[in-house]
Amino acid sequence: KNAAKIVNEALNQGITLFVSDNKLKYKTNRDSIPSELLEEWKQHKQELIDFLTQLES
């Protein structure tokens, strides 16, 4: 999976991924984040940080 797909899947579940101080963060109104999503974010962390940083610049 690529970073764009992961970010879109998160958005579809009401979760916004973003970068703050070079760290991957998220915002959501959900009570909890599915563990498989958290695991996927960890596996692709640097790719996600790079992707989101490019989007914001």
Score class of each variant (00 low, 15 high):
1 K>F: 14
1 K>R: 10
1 K>P: 08
1 K>H: 10
1 K>S: 11
1 K>Y: 12
1 K>G: 11
2 N>F: 09
2 N>D: 14
2 N>M: 12
3 A>I: 11
3 A>W: 05
3 A>N: 02
4 A>K: 09
4 A>M: 12
4 A>Y: 10
4 A>G: 07
4 A>V: 06
4 A>C: 13
5 K>L: 14
5 K>M: 15
6 I>M: 10
6 I>N: 01
6 I>E: 01
7 V>R: 03
7 V>G: 01
7 V>H: 04
7 V>T: 03
8 N>R: 15
8 N>K: 15
8 N>E: 15
10 A>T: 03
10 A>G: 03
10 A>W: 02
11 L>V: 06
11 L>Y: 10
11 L>E: 07
12 N>S: 15
12 N>A: 15
12 N>M: 15
12 N>Y: 09
12 N>D: 11
13 Q>N: 10
13 Q>H: 13
14 G>A: 04
14 G>I: 01
14 G>D: 05
14 G>R: 04
14 G>V: 01
15 I>D: 01
15 I>F: 08
15 I>P: 00
15 I>Q: 01
16 T>G: 03
16 T>A: 06
16 T>V: 15
17 L>H: 01
17 L>R: 01
17 L>A: 00
17 L>F: 04
18 F>C: 06
18 F>D: 02
18 F>P: 01
19 V>T: 05
19 V>I: 07
19 V>M: 05
19 V>W: 04
19 V>N: 02
19 V>S: 04
20 S>T: 11
20 S>C: 15
20 S>Y: 12
20 S>I: 14
21 D>Q: 09
21 D>Y: 06
21 D>L: 05
22 N>W: 05
22 N>L: 06
22 N>A: 07
23 K>N: 11
23 K>T: 14
23 K>H: 08
23 K>L: 12
24 L>C: 03
24 L>I: 07
24 L>P: 00
24 L>T: 00
24 L>V: 05
25 K>H: 14
25 K>G: 08
25 K>S: 09
25 K>P: 00
25 K>Q: 13
26 Y>I: 04
26 Y>A: 04
27 K>P: 01
27 K>Y: 10
27 K>D: 05
27 K>E: 06
28 T>Q: 03
28 T>F: 04
28 T>K: 03
28 T>A: 06
28 T>S: 09
28 T>P: 07
28 T>N: 04
28 T>H: 06
29 N>D: 14
29 N>P: 06
29 N>I: 08
29 N>K: 10
29 N>E: 13
30 R>T: 05
30 R>S: 06
30 R>W: 05
31 D>S: 11
31 D>Y: 05
31 D>Q: 11
32 S>Q: 09
32 S>G: 07
32 S>K: 10
33 I>W: 03
33 I>S: 02
33 I>P: 05
33 I>A: 03
33 I>V: 12
33 I>R: 02
33 I>H: 02
33 I>T: 03
34 P>C: 04
34 P>F: 03
34 P>T: 05
34 P>W: 02
34 P>I: 03
34 P>R: 04
35 S>I: 14
35 S>E: 14
36 E>F: 09
36 E>L: 07
36 E>K: 09
36 E>Q: 11
36 E>R: 08
37 L>F: 07
37 L>A: 04
37 L>W: 07
37 L>R: 03
37 L>M: 14
37 L>D: 02
38 L>S: 04
38 L>K: 06
39 E>C: 07
39 E>P: 02
39 E>K: 09
39 E>T: 08
40 E>M: 14
41 W>Q: 00
41 W>L: 06
42 K>W: 11
42 K>Q: 12
42 K>L: 14
42 K>C: 14
42 K>D: 12
43 Q>N: 11
43 Q>G: 06
43 Q>V: 12
43 Q>T: 13
43 Q>E: 11
43 Q>D: 07
44 H>R: 06
44 H>M: 08
44 H>C: 06
45 K>S: 13
45 K>E: 15
45 K>F: 12
46 Q>G: 06
46 Q>N: 08
47 E>L: 11
47 E>P: 05
47 E>N: 05
47 E>G: 05
47 E>W: 04
47 E>S: 08
48 L>N: 00
49 I>L: 07
49 I>T: 04
49 I>H: 03
49 I>P: 00
49 I>N: 01
49 I>M: 06
50 D>P: 03
50 D>W: 13
50 D>N: 10
50 D>A: 13
51 F>D: 00
51 F>N: 01
51 F>R: 01
51 F>H: 06
51 F>C: 02
52 L>I: 06
52 L>K: 00
52 L>A: 00
52 L>C: 02
53 T>W: 06
54 Q>I: 08
54 Q>H: 09
55 L>S: 12
55 L>N: 12
55 L>I: 10
55 L>R: 13
55 L>V: 13
56 E>S: 15
56 E>H: 13
56 E>A: 14
56 E>D: 12
57 S>Y: 06
57 S>D: 15
57 S>T: 12
